[in-house]
Design a protein around this nucleic acid. Structure first.
Lengths: 102, 102
DNA sequence: TCAATTGTTCTATTGTTTACGAACAATGGA
DNA sequence: TCCATTGTTCGTAAACAATAGAACAATTGA
């Protein structure tokens, strides 16, 4: 697996983050990661094909919402909480809270 | 002007709101309305054609982010702050705050 | 080495979004 | 009534996004 690009904290943009979070599949991923981080892509039960899931993980990564690390054949995902909180204080929390009853 | 449909507070969805806010033009509209509400569509200096602006106002309205009221030939816009705060506490504030240095 | 696992990339399809100009509708003032 | 103002709708084009299947790459274990 080649090196994955992650945007720097500074280069995160609000509109891109909001867009990344505005898809139900991606929001579900973020919710799961908020509950327990460090999960491999395959451990999410997503209602889409593997290739589509890969696309959604990529959108989240490129928006700076998640971090992906290769770990053997799988890749471990985690929320970029600190970066998001630093750049957009309160945003992630309010989104997670708002998505609770989902 | 015919009656404009506004979704009820209950029917607002997080993903729809996030999507509505994820466009730079729409975010600019929301920012302006947060500073001074009750502005007509024409008072916004937007970098798009009239018809395109109309589209963006509509997306915001249908997501439940803004309220539009006919007032003569113009239409007065305002943020649905109470509804948004009730449904998604802290979300609007964090978005507005995050968009400050924009 | 071979096969299984995990995820990415490529290609294609389908539908959505953004955008604009032109035409239209509604209102209000001259 | 006529005209200006304001905003919506329509038709259309270009760009983008979500989806899936097939092929591919990297790793791990047998």
């Amino acid at each position: 697996m080649r090196a994955l690009h992650h945007p720097s904290r500074k280069s995160l943009t609000l509109t891109q983050v909001l867009y990344a979070l505005s898809d139900p599949v991606r929001l579900a991923i973020v919710k799961h990661l908020a509950e327990d981080g460090g999960k491999a892509c395959g451990t999410f039960c997503l209602p889409v094909a593997k290739s589509t899931a890969s696309h959604h993980f990529r959108v989240l990564r490129e928006a700076g919402v998640i971090e992906m690390q290769s770990e053997g054949t799988q890749c471990i995902n985690s929320l970029r909480r600190e970066d998001l909180d630093a750049r957009f204080p309160g945003l992630l929390d309010s989104v997670l809270r708002a998505s609770d009853p989902l």
